[in-house]
Simulated assay, not measured.
Amino acid sequence: MPELGSQTASRGETDERRFIDALPPAEPLASDLSNGTVQTVAVRCSWGGELTASVTPNYTTAKHVSLFVPGFTGSKEDFLSFFPHLIDAAQPSESRAFMAFSQRGQADSARPAGDNDYALEDFVHDAQEVLVRIGADKRPVDVIGHSFGGIVARRLALASPSLVRSLTLLSSGAKPIAQTSQAKAWLQTLRTFGSTIIYKSKFPKLGDEPQQDPDIEMYRVRAHRTSLHNLLSIAAILADYDDVTDALHAAGIPVSIMFGEDDPVWPHDTYNNEAERLGITPVTFPGAGHSAQIDTPDALAQALCNFWSKVGE
């Protein structure tokens, strides 16, 4: 892979400085869900594995980059159908690039073999490496963490504050999820049947064979590719992690909290209390559940663009 660094745009391109060299291409996980707005690339990490990412083609030169970190059972594909809405909402669209990456063990990213390779610190370190690879030292990045991705993103911002221009926590609670009897039963089912239960539980009437619907086929392929070690380790993290709200407030990084009005994962008091401690007003989306990027994409896109414009240059 070429050494990453600044590079002057070639003759015939714009005179805008290139922030990084292009990352090497990778094969997409499934059919394109982004309406042709992204390309798939690989991010080589220092531990030897590659994380896959989806990026808009202007990511090497755009003045601003928005980086999406996916949640539990998710991957970069959770944002592909959302990116066209963001591109429409961002003005001028060519000045901002969008990127989502699959965390270790998710979908087609590298899958370390052991339980000990999926500590919260490992996920945070991977995200730091992604920031470095996309030139965040030259153009601090707006980070959006969805659900478990927000748990990672909080610690990413604290670990590398100079690389993070702003932080958006999308349906991501500051405190662990209560371990109900239903949650414990689902976890035992996951241990028994493996990662494919993610697909089977979402589409119980469908067989485990290629599907014509590209969204459904993505869920099926992702369930087969995602590491069981990843799922079990993240489930354990979600049940026991520290509240870092006070540290975030002290760091002075601009933060936005957003969630759907019908989000069932964390109690809404968890979101509202964190916002109060940070001195901000949360943004809620009527008609959205835990994944506003899917349920109310236009409303989320506009809310994100409004927040980024307030952060300034």
Rank of each mutant, 00 (worst) to 15 (best):
S181K: 13
R96A: 12
A110H: 10
Q212T: 14
P297D: 05
A30G: 02
V283K: 12
P140F: 03
T296Y: 00
A159N: 08
S93L: 00
Y241R: 11
S201W: 04
L231Q: 08
A292C: 04
A153E: 10
R191E: 12
T226G: 01
Q103L: 09
Y199F: 14
P254V: 10
S172T: 08
A113K: 14
L206K: 03
L33S: 04
Y219V: 12
G48K: 06
P204I: 13
W308E: 15
R222E: 04
Y59R: 01
V65A: 11
G48L: 08
L167I: 10
F203C: 10
V55Y: 06
N273M: 06
Y199K: 05
F285E: 14
R44I: 09
L170D: 02
M258D: 13
T192V: 12
T61E: 12
G135Q: 03
R133P: 13
A303F: 02
N230V: 07
W308R: 15
Y59L: 03
H268T: 11
A301V: 07
T226M: 00
L163F: 13
F98H: 05
A183D: 13
V38C: 14
F83I: 15
A62N: 09
R191C: 13
S160C: 14
A127G: 10
S227V: 10
H224V: 12
P70S: 13
R44E: 14
A251T: 11
A97Q: 04
G49F: 06
L4G: 13
V132H: 08
R18N: 12
D115W: 00
D115M: 02
D298I: 07
N58S: 03
Y271L: 08
A247Y: 03
V255E: 05
F72C: 07
S201K: 13
M99I: 15
V152D: 11
P286S: 02
A90K: 01
P210Q: 07
R104N: 04
A183R: 14
A42P: 10
V265I: 14
A178S: 15
S181W: 01
T52D: 11
V124Y: 00
A42G: 14
P267F: 02
K200D: 14
V255Y: 06
P297N: 09
P57E: 10
D246I: 05
E217T: 07
S34M: 02
A159I: 08
Q212L: 05
A89L: 05
V255S: 06
R154K: 10
G135H: 01
T270L: 01
P267V: 06
E209C: 09
G287A: 08
L131R: 10
C45I: 08
A235Q: 07
G145E: 01
T226Y: 00
D269L: 02
L23F: 05
S291Q: 09
L131S: 06
C305F: 00
R191F: 03
K63V: 10
R220V: 12
L86S: 11
D115C: 04
M99C: 13
A127W: 05
S93N: 05
L86A: 13
D243M: 09
E94C: 10
L228P: 12
S227Q: 08
D88M: 01
A299S: 15
P210L: 02
V311L: 07
I134N: 00
H290K: 08
I216M: 03
E77T: 15
P84W: 02
